[in-house]
Each structure stands twice: as structure tokens, then as C-alpha cells.
Amino acid sequence: MEALFALTLGLLTASGVYLLLRARTFPVVLGLTLLSYAVNLFLFAMGRLSGDVAVLGLSQAPADPLPQALVLTAIVIGFAMTAFVVVLALRGVADLGNDHVDGRADEERAP
């Protein structure tokens, strides 16, 4: 379980960082999304992977509920931010005429 979890986190983060470093806005937004998935899973794991449902009385060893609350907050904020950056990227295409992160024209792009 731990190994699978760690591998998933690593893969998500690596893909997120790779996409984040691309020169077009769409991959960058996808990269941010993947990165925030990785971060949310990481936060969740900080309450430890063992442990039962976090309801008192339902189990002998309830999991720590705080990381779950933190993850919920982080998901809500991350979702809103992603929506904002998508709108901003679309606005960039409309105002600047291209989807380069620096807003420069295509012909200036390195080959």
C-alpha cells in the first residue's frame, strides 16, 4: 500500500512538474492540476494510511480527521484557482493572439 501510494504521488508530481515547464498555457494548466492532485493525496497521507473511518464510535482506531478537513479546504481552493487560471489562459489567447505563456508570437519561438 505505502509503496503504491508513494509511486502514485511521485508519478503525479513528476508529470505535473514536466507539464508545468511547457511553453503553452494548456499543458501548464494541466500540470498545475496534476500537481494539486499530488498535493491533496500527500496531505491525506499525512494522517497516516492505516486507520479506520474517522467517525468516533464506529471503529476502534479512527483515522485522524484533521488532514481530511485540510484536504477538503485545499480541494475547494485548488478548484477555484484552476477555474480562474483556465479563464485567464483563454483571455490570454483572445487578447494576445496566441497561447504561449510569455504571450509572444509564434514566429519568435525557438525551433
Binding site: T25, L35, M81, G92, D95
Partner: peptide, 22 residues
């Protein structure tokens, strides 16, 4: 818009790192 895109993407990445630290 050009300056804003850099600012937003950088700060969103910063927020992700903030959450990892927390």
C-alpha cells in the same frame, strides 16, 4: 494579461509547495 498569467501560475505553484510543507 501577460504579466497576470506569470503571476497566477507562479503563485499557484507556490501554493502547492505551501501545502506540501504544511
Amino acid at each position: 494579461v501577460r504579466a497576470g498569467l506569470h503571476y497566477v501560475v507562479l503563485n499557484l505553484t507556490g501554493s502547492a509547495l505551501f501545502l506540501i510543507a504544511l
